[in-house]
Design a protein around this nucleic acid. Structure first.
Lengths: 208, 208, 208, 208
DNA sequence: CATGAATGAGGTTTCATTCAT
DNA sequence: TATGAATGAAACCTCATTCAT
C-alpha cells in the first residue's frame, strides 16, 4: 500500500438512490469480512468488491481509493466505541465514583468484546493507516466525556483531571487490547471486568 | 507481504569473515532506520540494502526474506526489553511492594523511552508480522520474572498471582504505548512515572 | 523455473467479453512465437506480453503463472496430435494391417510436420515442464485408439497388443523427432514416410 | 540460464597438479549428483560447488561458466555411449545381420540403462543446452560405425545405407527413451531387448 | 451507473559471476 | 590457488487504479 503524501480520506460521493446505498453498505461490510477472514495484507480491492457482489469499478465510484475504504471502516468502529463511552458517561453524572467507573467499563467491554473480531482486525488497520489524527480526536472526545462525568462525582474531586482521565482510559485499554489480541476467552473477559474496576478505583483513590 | 503457512524466520547463514559481520550489522541497522524514517509500508528490501550501502543480493545472503529481517529487529528489541525487566525483577526480591513496583516501572520506562522511536516503529512490525508467538513468549518470561519477585514481597501476598501480573503488565503497557505512539514529550514521560506507580500500587492494594 | 509441489496449471479465469477473448488468443499465439523465435530459456512473461501487445498484468489475469501458459500451449498441441491420430485410427477399423499403418503414419506426419516448428519448440517445453502426467495420458489415449484399430485388422492378430502398440508408437516417434529436431528438409520428410511403413510393418509381421 | 550469443564451451584450463585434478573430478561428479537429485532447474553453481566440497570461486577456475559444466557432463555421457556403440560395431564386422543387430542393441541398452538416471537427467540438459552440434557429431560417429559394420554383413546388402542406419538408430532411440523417461522397470527393460530386435530386423529385411 | 479488462510501476527473490583477501 | 562475500541484472508476480463499453 503505497502512501502518497497527502490523501483525501473522505468517501468520494454520497449516493442518493436506495440501490446505491445498498451497494455502499455491501462494500463496507465486505471490507470488514475480508479483513477478518483474510487479514489486512490480503485485503485487495478486487477481493472486497467480489465479496460485496460488485465490481472494482463500482467500489471506486464510492471510495476514491483503498485507504478511504479502510478509513471508513475504522471511523465507524471508532464512532461506535465513542457513542457507547459518551452515552455511559453522560448518563452517569452526579453519582459516586464507583458507579461511574463501572458504567464506563461496562460500556467499553460491551462494545469492544461484542465485536471482538472487528476490534482485533482494526488494530492492524489503525496501525497501518495514517490515521493518528482521527484516532486522537476520537480519544479526546471520549476523554472529554469522561472528564465531564468525573467532575460531577459526588464523592471525589481531582486536581489534574486531564492526566487522570488519560491514565484511566489508557490503563483500561492495555488489558483490554491484550485480551482481544490474545483471542480472549469468555471467562477471561468476564474476569477482566472486576480487575479493571480495581485498577481504576485503586488509581483514582490515590489521585483524589 | 503475503505470509505462507510456515516460514523460517531465522537468518540464513552466519557470516564467517569479519567483513561480512559488518555487512550484517549494517543491514540490521538500516532496517531500523528505514522503519523509522519511511515507515513499514515503505520498507522495501532494496531500500534497506541501499541505506546499508549494500546490494539486495547481499541482504538475501543473510536473511532469507524480508520477514526474517523484520523478525530479527523485533527480536532484538524484545530481548532488550526483556533483559531490563527481568534484571529489575531479579534484583528486587524480598523487598516491600512499593520498591518492587518502582523498580519495574523505572526499568520499563528507561528501556522503552530510551529507544522511543524504535519502540514505536516496532509496534507496527509486530502487528503486521506473524509474530504472535515470540511476542507471547517474551511476555510470559517477563511476567514470570515479575511474579517470582512479587512472591517474595515482604508486605503482601496475592491469591491469583498470574492474573494480577497480567493486569499489572498490560495496565502499564497501556499508558506507555499511548505516550510512545503519541510521540511523548519529555515532561509527559516524567509525569507518567508517578502515575504508573499509583496505578499499580492502587490495584495491588485491592488484590492483596 | 522452480516447481513447487502442487501447481494449478489451469487458466485463471474465463474471459467474458469478446475483447478479452482476443487478448487471450493473442497471448497464446505470442507464447508460441516467442518459443520459436527466442527459445524456452528466453521466454519471459514480459516478452510474451509485449509480443502479444498486452501488459504483464493482463497476461496474469488469464494465466496464473508462466507454467500455466506453457502448459496451455503444450496441451493444445497434444490435443491436435491426438485428434489426428484417433481420427485416423477410428476411421480405419476392419482393414488390412498395411492400410492401417499407412493411415496412422500419414496422420502423424501430417500433424507433426504441418506445425513442424511448433512441434520442435514443444519438445523442450514438455521436458522442462512438470507435464509427465498429461503427456502420458495423451499417449495412452493415442495408444488405446491404435490398439482398438489393430484388434480389428482383417489379416492379423496379436498376442501382447499393449506392448506391440507401445513399440509401434515409440518407434515411430524416434525418427520423427530426430527429423523434426534436425530441422527436417522436405525431401527427408517425404522419404521418411516409406521407411516408417517398413519399420512398422516389418515389426508387426514378426509379432503377429 | 541466460544464453549470450557466442559461448566458449570448453573448460577453462587444464589442471596440472593432482590435487587440482581431484577438485575438477569432484565438481564434475557433483554436477551429475545435483542434476539427479535436484533437477536441472535447481542446479546452481553454488549448490554444485557445495556438494563438491569446494567453493564457487574454485568452480569458476575450471569452468568458465555454468554451461561449460553441463557441457562437460553431457560430453562425457555421449562419449560413453559412443564408445559402447562403436566397440560393439567394430567387433562384429563380417557377421550375419542378426548377430550385428543384437550386439548393437545389447551395447546400447547396457550403456543407457546402466546409467539410467544419468541418461534421464541428460535428456533435459541436451534439450536446454545449445548442444545440437556435439550431439549431431556424436550421432554421426555412431552411425558411421554402424554403417561400416553393416557393409560387411555376410547376409545382406543395402542400397541407401545412410538412411537405413538413420532409421535404425532413431527407431531404437524411440522406445529406449520412452522407457528411460518413464522410469523403466527392470522387467520392461528386459522385454524391450527382444522387441527392439524384431523392430530392427523386420525393418532391415524390407530394406535389403 | 456498473462492469471488468487492461495497465504498469514496483515489490520480492534468485543466481551467475567477479574479485578482494 | 582457494575462498566466499558481494554484486545487480533480470525474472516472476501483484494489485491499486483507470476507462472504454
Amino acid at each position: 500500500m503505497a502512501l502518497p503524501a497527502k490523501i483525501v480520506l473522505k468517501p468520494r460521493k454520497k449516493p442518493r438512490q436506495a440501490r446505491s446505498q445498498a451497494t455502499v453498505d455491501a462494500i463496507f461490510e465486505a471490507t470488514i469480512q475480508v479483513l477478518l477472514r483474510d487479514g489486512l495484507p490480503r485485503l485487495t480491492t478486487i477481493r472486497v468488491a467480489e465479496r460485496a457482489g460488485a465490481s472494482v469499478g463500482t467500489l471506486y465510484q464510492y471510495y476514491p481509493h483503498k485507504e478511504a475504504l479502510l478509513f471508513a471502516v475504522l471511523q465507524r468502529h471508532l464512532a461506535n466505541v465513542e457513542r457507547a463511552i459518551t452515552q455511559a458517561a453522560e448518563s452517569h453524572h452526579n453519582m459516586p465514583l464507583a458507579t461511574m467507573i463501572s458504567a464506563v467499563i461496562d460500556a467499553l467491554m460491551k462494545v469492544k468484546t461484542g465485536r471482538l473480531e472487528e476490534s482485533r482486525a482494526l488494530y492492524a488497520v489503525s496501525t497501518e493507516l495514517n490515521s493518528r489524527e482521527i484516532v486522537r480526536e476520537h480519544e479526546q472526545r471520549c476523554r472529554a466525556a469522561i472528564a465531564a462525568m468525573l467532575k460531577t462525582a459526588t464523592d471525589a474531586k481531582f486536581r489534574d483531571l486531564d492526566t487522570v482521565v488519560f491514565m484511566l482510559t489508557t490503563a483500561m485499554a492495555g488489558p483490554t487490547r491484550a485480551i482481544i489480541e490474545g483471542g480472549g476467552s469468555a471467562t477471561r473477559i468476564r474476569a477482566l471486568r472486576g480487575h479493571l474496576r480495581s485498577l481504576c478505583l485503586g488509581y483514582l483513590e490515590r489521585q483524589r
